[in-house]
Design a protein around this nucleic acid. Structure first.
Length: 219
DNA sequence: GACCAGGCACATC
DNA sequence: GATGTGCATGGT
């Protein structure tokens, strides 16, 4: 009989052993992380990279530049990520939020208590719980666990949570049972994404899954 | 050509 | 609170 804490540690160890450190987030600056977090919503990362590169070429990866750019221009540049009209509004909404509250300064924004900032980010149209938490953890270096579709799929496949569990239920499942360490939260989520991309897909390849049978040890 | 990808807002019950 | 739908490109 293992505890939840025990099985979460076991999962982490196995993933780390299989895939190694992930060095997340795949973005050069905190601002780039934030834009990437918005653009990757329900979108393959390879397409986000194309959009980020388009923005970089036009020197648009700064708050000021994105404040000035015309929505139509922005939409064209982020087209590869899909939903480009929606995402144009989302990016613009975040930029407006950043200037209205923090004079366009990420440094000032992250001086805010991270739970207060979280609730403010959730009030920005286009930023939901996963995007907010990704911003807080990977751009702001705050101790919060990011939950995504892979997390839900992997845990429910192993009968550790219900597939219908809410975002906060899954988040608490981790945060109530893991040490409150930024580095651990960072690496753990990245490793789950790695497993999800490689193996735990809609059509899984359980034969080579490093977590195979882990739920049986739990009972 | 079908299926999928590191969500979210909004309408409706 | 749960469930359904629109948003859209690009890779496999």
């Amino acid at each position: 009989m293992k505890t939840t804490k025990g099985i979460l540690e076991e999962i982490y160890q196995r993933l780390y052993k299989s895939f190694g450190p992930q060095h997340w987030w795949p973005g050069k600056t905190p601002f780039e992380v934030i834009i990437g977090a918005i653009l990757t919503q329900n979108t393959a990362w390879v397409n986000v990279e194309k959009a980020i590169n388009n923005l970089r070429k036009k020197s648009l990866l700064t708050p000021k530049a994105l404040k000035r750019v015309l929505p139509k221009t922005l939409a064209t540049l982020i087209r590869p990520t899909g939903y480009y009209n929606q995402k144009t509004k989302k990016v613009k909404n975040f930029i407006r939020f950043l200037f209205d509250n923090y004079q366009g300064s990420l440094k000032k924004m992250f001086l805010e208590d991270f739970l207060v900032l979280r609730s403010k980010l959730l009030n920005v149209n286009g930023i939901g719980p996963e995007t907010a938490d990704s911003i807080l953890l990977y751009a702001g270096n705050s101790p919060i666990f990011v939950v995504d579709a892979y997390t839900r799929r992997i845990l429910s496949r192993h009968n550790l949570i219900s597939y219908q569990a809410s975002y906060s239920e899954i988040q608490n499942y981790f945060m109530d049972n893991l040490e409150n360490e930024i580095k651990l939260f960072n690496e753990y989520h990245a490793l789950l994404v790695c497993l999800g991309k490689e193996i735990c897909k809609p059509k899984p390849n359980c034969r080579i899954c490093p977590l195979r049978g882990i739920e049986k040890e739990f009972v």
